Amino acid sequence: MPTSGQSLAYIGLVLTPLFWAGNAVVARGTVGDIPPLSMSFWRWVLALAILLPFGLPGILRHRRVIRAHLGSIVALATFSVAAFNSLLYAAAMTTTATNIALINATIPIFVALLAWILLGDRTRPTQVAGIGMAIVGILCVIARGDLSVLTGLQAQSGDLIMVGAVFCWGLFSVLLRRQAVPLPALTFLTIQILVGALVLLPVYLTDLLFFSGGFEVSQTTLLPLLFFAIFPGILAYAFWNHGVHSIGPSRTAIFMYLTPVYASVLAIIFLGESLSLFHLVGGSLILGGLILATQSKRPFQRQLARTQQP
Rank of each mutant, 00 (worst) to 15 (best):
148 S>V: 08
270 F>R: 13
80 S>Q: 12
263 A>F: 07
189 L>G: 03
156 Q>P: 03
1 M>H: 10
120 G>M: 12
152 G>P: 14
86 S>H: 02
227 F>T: 08
285 L>T: 07
250 S>Q: 15
83 A>E: 04
7 S>W: 12
301 Q>N: 07
72 S>T: 10
291 I>D: 00
290 L>V: 02
179 Q>E: 12
172 F>A: 00
122 R>V: 13
65 V>D: 10
96 T>S: 11
248 G>I: 03
185 A>W: 13
82 A>W: 01
110 F>H: 01
162 M>A: 04
13 L>F: 08
128 V>P: 02
146 D>F: 06
10 Y>E: 01
250 S>K: 14
9 A>I: 03
244 V>R: 14
96 T>R: 12
112 A>Y: 07
178 R>N: 13
100 I>M: 04
200 L>T: 06
76 L>M: 08
48 L>F: 13
224 P>M: 09
270 F>V: 07
73 I>W: 01
3 T>W: 01
135 I>C: 14
249 P>G: 14
108 P>G: 00
274 S>K: 15
202 P>G: 02
3 T>N: 05
48 L>H: 08
241 N>C: 10
248 G>K: 10
60 L>E: 08
220 T>K: 15
89 Y>I: 03
110 F>V: 03
126 T>Y: 09
71 G>S: 10
7 S>M: 15
36 P>K: 06
210 F>Y: 13
241 N>P: 15
128 V>E: 03
8 L>K: 15
293 A>L: 09
24 A>Y: 01
89 Y>N: 03
301 Q>L: 11
92 A>R: 04
136 V>K: 12
2 P>T: 06
226 L>I: 13
